[in-house]
């Protein structure tokens, strides 16, 4: 399962990554103490500064590729900064953060999980005062009907999924893509019973890629990442369930300035271009 795709390392890879993150965070804590005295005065004035230290970002698994790309650019600008990621399901990350996992930034795949963190561990007060108490929405993601390239069941729109003998895979309601699916299907007024509620959107994609189901509801970013192994069909009801990706500096961040700089990079024009290229929509 741990194949070459870094995204795959997402959910099941989070435990070893957490360990790494913990070690990295320790480093952050240590260097942060030293950096405190010379701390930058203004969070906005980050570009061009000689930022240094270690940054730990907890991000939804669907951000794996884009964040890695943004990090390359970020580290080029700030060679003394080391960025460590923990990619996993948003709700797992929220639980880890609320259980005290050391992280500077949390980027969630939906607002609900961000809310868990806001109510739990909390966001950095200064940052939240400036950018919003519920985090800053930096990207959106929209559902698509994923079908195998040859589309054997001839799926054209959402209503086709309700057809007899059509096998569909949905995300489980408990995970963000499942919640969005429920909203979209609810908006359509259709009665669609899938054959399976998958544990995450990647699993839905796998089932479609292997042709085990005729169709699955996934995000536009997932269709892009599948590189032609599935075809993505837009459908109008998806607009009812656009998924917002919020990001925020965490209250227990060891270096909120560095964390804020990362968020600046994500929301910059360059960052937005990377996100769009991966299939994300603008907020």
């Amino acid at each position: 399962m741990r194949d070459s795709s870094p995204r795959r390392a997402g959910r099941r890879g989070h435990r070893p990554l957490t360990g790494l993150a913990a070690v990295a965070a320790l480093g952050v804590a240590l260097t942060a103490c030293g950096a405190e005295d010379t701390g930058p005065g203004d969070g906005a004035d980050t570009f061009g500064d000689a930022l240094s230290g270690e940054l730990t970002v907890f991000a939804a698994a669907s951000l794996t590729d884009v964040f890695a790309e943004i990090a390359d650019d970020f580290q080029e600008r700030h060679p003394d900064v080391a960025v460590t990621f923990n990619f996993a399901g948003s709700s797992e990350l929220a639980q880890q953060i609320n259980a005290g996992a050391p992280a500077d930034v949390f980027a969630a795949a939906n607002t609900a999980t961000m809310e868990q963190v806001v109510e739990g561990e909390g966001l950095d007060a200064d940052w939240a005062g400036e950018h919003g108490e519920h985090g800053l929405v930096f990207a959106t993601n929209t559902l698509r009907i994923a079908v195998p390239p040859d589309n054997p069941a001839g799926i054209g729109d959402l209503a086709d999924l309700a057809g007899d003998g059509v096998q569909a895979a949905f995300c489980a309601e408990e995970v963000p893509c499942g919640a969005a699916t429920t909203t979209a299907v609810g908006a359509s007024g259709l009665e669609i019973t899938p054959v399976t509620y998958e544990e995450d959107v990647r699993a839905v994609l796998t089932k479609v890629e292997l042709g085990e189901v005729d169709a699955g509801l996934v995000y536009s970013t997932d269709v892009i990442s599948a590189e032609g192994r599935v075809e993505g069909l837009e459908f109008p009801e998806a607009e009812e369930a656009v998924n917002d990706y919020p990001i925020g500096v965490l209250a227990n961040s060891g270096d909120s300035a560095l964390a804020a700089a990362w968020i600046e990079a994500v929301t910059s024009a360059e960052g937005a271009a990377v996100l769009t290229g991966a299939g994300f929509g603008a907020p």
């Binding site: 895979a169 054959v195 399976t196 509620y197 998958e198 544990e199 699993a203 796998t206 089932k207």
Partner: peptide, 13 residues
């Protein structure tokens, strides 16, 4: 199980 059988309450969950 979740990979091969999927996850549907009452059937494979």
């Amino acid at each position: 199980t979740i990979t091969f059988a999927g996850n549907f309450p009452g059937t494979t969950q």
